[in-house]
Design a protein around this nucleic acid. Structure first.
Lengths: 141, 141
DNA sequence: AAACAAAGTTGTAATGATTACAAATATGAA
DNA sequence: TTCATATTTGTAATCATTACAACTTTGTTT
C-alpha cells in the first residue's frame, strides 16, 4: 500500500469519503510536522489546487479533529494550529517568535488520563510556554 | 492586613500602581475561581464601576498575565479565560457545555519544567478535554 | 495653588480569524 | 439521463481582540 492509499483508507475508516481535498489536507498533515495553521495549509496546497477554498480547509480540519484524525492546538491567541501526529506528545511554543517544537513525554503518568468525578476525558494537551534558544541569544546581545 | 491591602501590595510588588480598576480586577480574580473571560469580568464589575472600559480589562489582564499575577488560559477557541489562582494545577473543559473545572495534579513530575535544548520554559499548561458528568447523562437520555 | 508631565483609562474604529449560508459542483444510484 | 445527496466554494457576517487618539487622574515643580 502506497502513501496515498494509506491516507485514503484512514479517511474511510474515520467515515469520510476520500475527496481530493480531504486527501490533500490529510496528506499534508501527515508529512509536515510544522503544526500548520489554516492559512499555511492554504498557501501550501493552493498552487496545485487552485480552486481550493479556505472554508473547505476550516471545515475539513474541524471534522478531522473531531474524529481524531488530527489534533487542534490552541497554542497561541491568534490562530489554531493543527497537528497530524496524533501520538502522545507535548509542545513548546516561544512567546517571542512563535516557533512550536514537539516535546517528548517520557513520564507515562503525564499522558495517563485521570478520572474526573464522572467526566469522560477524551484528550490531554500539555503545553510549555517560554523563550526559545535563538530568541534568548538575540535578546542578550 | 485586610484583603484589599493584600491586593494593593501584590500590585505594587509586581510594579503596578494600584489604581481602582486594577484593584477591582485583581480582587475579582482572587475571589472568583470561575476562570472568567473579559466579558464576564466586565459584566461583574460594570454595575459598581459604570465607567469601566473593556479595553482597560483587556490591557490589565494582559499585563497581569505577563507579570505572573494571573494566568491566561486558551482552553477554547472562542475566548481567553483568566485564572487568579497561580498555584500549579490543570484544567478540564467540557466540549459540550464549556464548563471549566480545576484538576489537582498529584504527580509533581508533571509540573516540573523540563530543559528543552536551550529554551527557557516559563509556564506549563495542562488541559483535559472531554464531556462532563452532566452532559454525559443528558446525552444518554 | 497653578502648571506641567507622566501614567492610566476610555470609547470608537479597525483588524482579522472563523463561521454562516446559499449557490455551484461532484458523486453515485435508479 | 435524472435525480438525490454529499461536498465544495465564495461572499458576507460575526465577534473577540487590538490600535489609537482623546480624556482623566495623579503627583511634582514652581
Amino acid at each position: 500500500m502506497n502513501a496515498t492509499q494509506e491516507i485514503v483508507s484512514q479517511l474511510q475508516e474515520a467515515g469520510f469519503k476520500p475527496s481530493l481535498q480531504r486527501i490533500a489536507i490529510l496528506e499534508y498533515l501527515r508529512t509536515h510536522f510544522t503544526h500548520p495553521t489554516v492559512d499555511e495549509i492554504y498557501e501550501a496546497l493552493s498552487p496545485s489546487m487552485p480552486t481550493l477554498s479556505k472554508t473547505t480547509i476550516y471545515n475539513t480540519l474541524r471534522s478531522f479533529s473531531q474524529s481524531g484524525l488530527a489534533l487542534s492546538l490552541r497554542l497561541d491567541e491568534k490562530n489554531v494550529h493543527y497537528d497530524g501526529d496524533t501520538a502522545p506528545h507535548a509542545h513548546f511554543i516561544c512567546k517571542d517568535c512563535g516557533k512550536i517544537m514537539d516535546v517528548v513525554i517520557n513520564n507515562t503518568d503525564m499522558l495517563h488520563i485521570p478520572t474526573l468525578c464522572g467526566a469522560e476525558v477524551q484528550a490531554v494537551e500539555i503545553s510549555y510556554y517560554g523563550q526559545c534558544d535563538t530568541c534568548k541569544k538575540q535578546k542578550e546581545k
